[in-house]
Design a protein around this nucleic acid. Structure first.
Length: 594
RNA sequence: GCGCCCGUAGCUCAACUGGAUAGAGCACCCGCCUUCUAAGCGGGCGGUUGCAGGUUCGAGCCCUGCCGGGCGCGCCA
């Protein structure tokens, strides 16, 4: 069912058509002046420009045709030719009633369902996640949920960084430190059969913490020690040639990392459908290179094989895609291209969304062009949804490579600590048992972190300031949770007293405002969907919570007359359902009590 | 050097594809708890949207040029 904006747009479009004007100009939007109207149409201004006529005159003609509609309580022409609309209380009541029961809580599904892949997170083997992974995970998860919510067939892929030179480094470092692992690896390499339990027992001595400790050290040494670097290179080549011992050890790195990462992601409310990695497309690369060559796309240049992607009319000089290096190895763009091919074969998505740092924009442009040239994707079927950097209080980005950065786990624990403190300070959660209190503190922490990120447009950089995010006042995640918890508490009380919700009747200004805000959910979700910008959902959730809070302060519920009480309870219920839906789209949830 | 992004209130950020009086939160000031959770609500203060031009009925948004900041520019990923 459509929201009021769409319903009114149809009416106004018809009025435009009847007045001999282009109906598409009859688009209705929420009013910029809530003091004057609920909705407005600016179409008369555009129509006047095209027809070289007086905008107010046209607006008046349209307005006269609208006056009879039952949904419209008032229509007037203002300013240079704005058509201001006020919806009737009856129409608003009916709409609120609808939102209260609709499966999508007032939002609408897409008209044509598409298969969509969201590629986000980007975790790497041997590297615990740190704050640098936060944005991709948070934004990607939200986009995935928004697309799925509107009906698309969506798959979220972690795009696991599990292949390449870093693996050779790690194999070297681990076998240097752990003689028993080295022994097992050598035995396997030599083709000896080793009991799998023994392999597990030996390799089990190395966990993610070890890898995290060894990797930076090895990377550092490789920079200065040529011999060491060359050995890592040979080990990488041996791994890629599937030398049994190295491959088995790599598998251990892979598994131990994935288990730990899945746990960390899950704590953040981030769950992937696929953990496809670079290793999964390794076998596709050689045939793909042959295919590219047969299509005449590969060009030899300075010993490497490249695809030139420049187009007529380009303002900038994009570099070519380096497919095969002069040493004969595949580059990261090659892997990305193979991944696109793999996805086309396995899922054939209409759209693949890459939720990756904005700094990769040129890289993706090159890869996407090459993919289209190779016939692996349709023009426009690949989209890089970039985001800005998360900066520290000093204005500099958090480092995402090389040691010394804050681990995501530690960050979450810091936020949880703050949440516990604040809950105690406010005297909230006193009646909860230890486990429920901990659950609440975790929900508060995650809401604080996620909402702080998602309320900003993804493209702009923002300052990461944990003290501010966890201040728990104003426009924050915890504020949203608090509003949800207040309604839950109210509804519990109503249930205890045997009071039921009833038909919604919009009368008071605060009720009107809340109902209009509920109605705006659809537009917010559609905007977030179209622009891949969850901040529109975040903004809506905040406005909804605010509208409710005003309503809650202005309109007593339990103490009101039975009809009014039933109506307000229904309104509160509808609000809670939509708010929880919005929070879910953002990737977090409210506790029952706090 | 070439290219991309950004510059909005003291601070952190919005702004529905060019519309009315540019909005929130924080901070600061003033009110509101014997009644449903005050992590709340109401009110106030705070702007030449970096600068200068242009396009038009109308520009934070489009164009041009400056100033300032960030980032990217084939054999790392």
């Amino acid at each position: 069912m459509s929201d009021l904006k769409r319903g009114l747009s149809e009416v106004v479009a018809q009025a435009f058509a009847d007045a001999g004007l282009p109906p598409e100009l009859g688009r209705v939007t929420a009013s910029d002046r809530p003091d004057l109207a609920d909705f407005q149409s600016n179409g008369a201004l555009a129509a006047a420009k095209a027809a070289r006529r007086n905008p107010r005159e046209l607006a008046t003609q349209v307005a006269e045709r609208l006056a009879g509609d039952a949904r419209i309580a008032a229509v007037e022409v203002a300013g240079p030719g704005f058509i201001n609309l006020k919806v009737s209380d009856d129409a608003l009541s009916a709409r609120a009633q609808q939102i209260a029961t609709e499966p999508l809580a007032g939002a609408s599904a897409v008209e044509a369902v598409r298969r969509v892949i969201v590629d986000y997170g980007g975790p790497n083997v041997a590297k615990p996640m740190h704050v640098g992974h936060l944005r991709s995970s948070i934004i990607g998860e939200s986009i995935k949920r928004i697309y799925r919510f509107r009906g698309d067939n969506v798959v979220g892929d972690a795009h696991f960084g599990d292949w390449g030179f870093q693996m050779g480094l790690l194999i070297g470092a681990v076998t240097d430190e752990q003689p028993q692992i080295a022994a097992v690896v050598e035995a396997l390499n030599a083709g000896q059969s080793v009991d799998d339990e023994a392999v597990r027992a030996a390799m089990g001595a190395v966990d993610l913490a070890d890898l995290d400790r060894l990797y930076p050290a090895a990377a550092g040494r490789a920079k200065e020690d040529i011999e060491y670097r060359e050995r890592a290179r040979r080990l990488t080549a041996a791994l890629q040639a599937r030398t049994p011992g190295y491959h088995r050890l790599w598998l251990h790195f892979h598994d131990v990392t994935r288990v730990a990462l899945e746990r960390d992601f899950h704590a953040l409310g981030v769950d992937f459908d696929l953990w496809k990695g670079e290793s999964d497309v390794e076998d596709l690369i050689d045939p793909m290179v042959d295919d590219l060559a047969s299509k005449g796309l590969l060009v030899d240049d300075q010993g490497a094989r490249i695809i030139r992607v420049v187009r007529e009319g380009d303002k900038r000089e994009l570099p070519p895609l380096l497919v095969v290096s002069s040493e004969g190895s595949a580059m990261y763009g090659t892997t990305d291209l193979a991944t696109i091919l793999d996805r086309k074969t396995s899922f054939d998505p209409a759209l693949a969304i890459y939720c990756v740092d904005q700094r990769q924009a040129d890289h993706f442009e090159v890869v996407f062009r090459a993919a289209v040239m190779a016939g692996f994707a349709e023009e426009g079927g690949l989209e890089h949804v970039g985001f800005g950097t998360m900066n520290g209080a000093d204005g500099k980005p958090f480092k995402t490579r090389e040691g010394g950065v804050l681990k995501l786990n530690d960050l979450i624990e810091m936020a949880r600590t703050k949440a516990r403190e604040r809950l105690h300070e406010a005297g909230l959660g006193a009646e909860l048992d230890a486990a429920a209190f901990e659950d609440t503190a975790h929900k508060v922490a995650v809401a604080a972190l996620k909402f702080a990120d998602l309320q900003n447009f993804r493209g702009t950089s923002y300052v990461f300031d944990l003290d501010r995010f966890t201040s728990f006042e104003g426009k924050t995640g915890p504020y949203l949770l608090y509003q949800a918890v207040r309604v839950k508490s109210l509804l519990r009380r109503a249930a205890d007293e045997g009071v039921a919700a009833g038909p919604i009747r919009i009368i008071e200004p605060a009720e009107r405002e809340l109902a209009l805000t509920l109605d705006a959910f659809d537009a917010a979700v559609a905007e977030a969907y179209d622009k891949k910008a969850p901040n529109h959902v975040a903004e809506h959730a905040y406005r909804l919570a605010q509208s409710f809070s005003r309503f809650y302060a202005a309109c007593p519920i339990m103490g009101a007359e039975p009809d009014v009480r039933a109506s307000r309870l229904a309104l509160a219920q509808a609000m809670l359902r939509q708010l929880e839906q919005a929070l879910d789209l953002l990737g977090f949830s409210a506790p029952e009590r706090m």
